[in-house]
Design a protein around this nucleic acid. Structure first.
Lengths: 253, 253
DNA sequence: ACCTGAACACCGTTCAAGT
DNA sequence: ACCTGAACACCGTTCAAGT
């Protein structure tokens, strides 16, 4: 694709170099490939993870994807660990840019938390294989419990609640309940998605039997229900319950 | 070191072989080191992770810890991935051996789930740096939603509920609610523990200011509360709420 | 200014060879 | 039977050198 574009822009069918024209028009330098750039690197890493998984992400492979040798990446990224951190920052940034999420809590804290939860869920579902990084990378502020990454996110959350009548203690308690809720639900949902469930693994309720089920009669009996995906509905329901619980915290603390 | 031991045990200072004496006493072969063994390898890996973190776990280092070259490990473990899976199995096994957890649900499903939850939490807290593997390793049964590892665990859970009046549908719904609850709470709790929080990171409420807090006034204001660890109490409280919710599921489904 | 070749230390893993 | 030496392919990372 990139070579294709390059061909089209550097010479036309008659062999005329038309690079000059492009420059005159103020476009990118003919096709001396766009110089590398930190954001482009992080995006490519994200793409790779979603396509092929975190385990195969390699500085060398990432370089190849960008038509560059691995060493070039180090001009823009201090190292692989920092690259993974940068991915997390992009994911969190996506959340913050979402206008749905960003909107101030004018319609009350319940609406605010609803939008926040759905915003995080959208990001998680859009990047199922990368999302677990958000939970596993060492946090920006380790003294913060729970140590979710991104002080920006925490600030948004706490100031949102405090602006709608939460006491300091209630806001902190709400923060804890909300984050563990999101983590549990989204990590599980995302891990079913990332599992690359082969069509043969669906375990039809036909007469054929998975040998592993011989010693697990209850799992076998309930296997149809266990295979169904009700993640969306369960998320809504559990979120509703959570908001009720936070409402109690709000008036009690 | 290894050659040193060998010298000391196979011959004494006068050149007498003393291996026979040891054998006569019925002890381990003098100290020709205990032959390797799959369980010993997995235990050593667990120890290494808790001491030094998953990132530094290496077949070569693991070999060194066992006074053996890395290649020897491959006689007992097919590869590094399988080793990580084996660690998860040990953790889950620990849970199942806990008599507190294992006891049949004779005192009702609420007591049963209480014991189960606390059993899982004990294991998580005992191995904070290894526990995240339970959530991140690809599951034994990918068609199972959520895909928690270990069919044994799922079987225990479901048959426990079904033996105390849960319909099939209610048991499945309860399973989903329970696992996402445990995952969220324990991963967050364990990640605060594993963070190796330096004493300087506690962020005293003294007058010194972390520069990162300049743009996060609410976090700064609430930092004392955010640093406190109420994980145990919050776990109990949230578990109580969860059991209430499951009670509703039980009668409704 | 931006990229690369060559190099270094360290991986996971295999296999023929040692004891 | 159990372990190791030597080797292979592949990592992350550095740095002097190329354009």
């Amino acid at each position: 694709m990139t070579p294709h574009e390059r061909e089209l822009t550097t010479t036309d069918a008659d062999g005329h170099p038309d690079a000059d024209a492009a420059i005159v028009l103020g476009e990118d330098p003919p096709s001396a490939r766009v110089p590398l750039d930190r954001r482009r690197i992080v995006d490519a890493a994200l793409e790779h993870i979603e396509e092929s998984g975190l385990a195969t992400l390699t500085m060398r492979r990432l370089g190849a994807r960008l038509d560059v040798e691995a060493m070039s990446l180090y001009r823009y990224v201090p190292g692989k660990e920092d690259l993974l951190d940068a991915i997390v920052e992009i994911l969190i940034g996506d959340m913050h840019e979402d206008p749905e999420v960003l909107a101030a809590p004018e319609c009350g804290w319940q609406d605010f938390l609803q939008r926040l939860a759905h915003g995080v869920r959208r990001v998680a579902l859009a990047h199922p294989k990368s999302f677990p990084l958000v939970a596993s990378r060492p946090p920006e502020a380790p003294w913060l419990r729970p140590p979710l990454r991104s002080l920006d996110w925490v600030e948004t959350f706490l100031s949102g609640l405090c602006s709608d009548g939460f006491s300091d203690e209630a806001a902190v308690a709400g923060y804890r309940a909300f984050t563990s809720f999101l983590l549990g639900h989204l990590l599980l949902e995302v891990s079913s998605l990332g599992a690359d469930i082969g069509p043969l693994d669906v375990l039809e309720d036909g007469d054929d039997e998975d040998p592993r089920l011989r010693d697990h009669p209850t799992v076998r009996r309930l296997r149809r229900g266990l295979g169904e995906d009700h993640a969306a509905a369960e998320f809504e329901e559990a979120l509703e319950e959570l908001l009720n619980r936070i409402a109690v915290i709000r008036v009690e603390l």
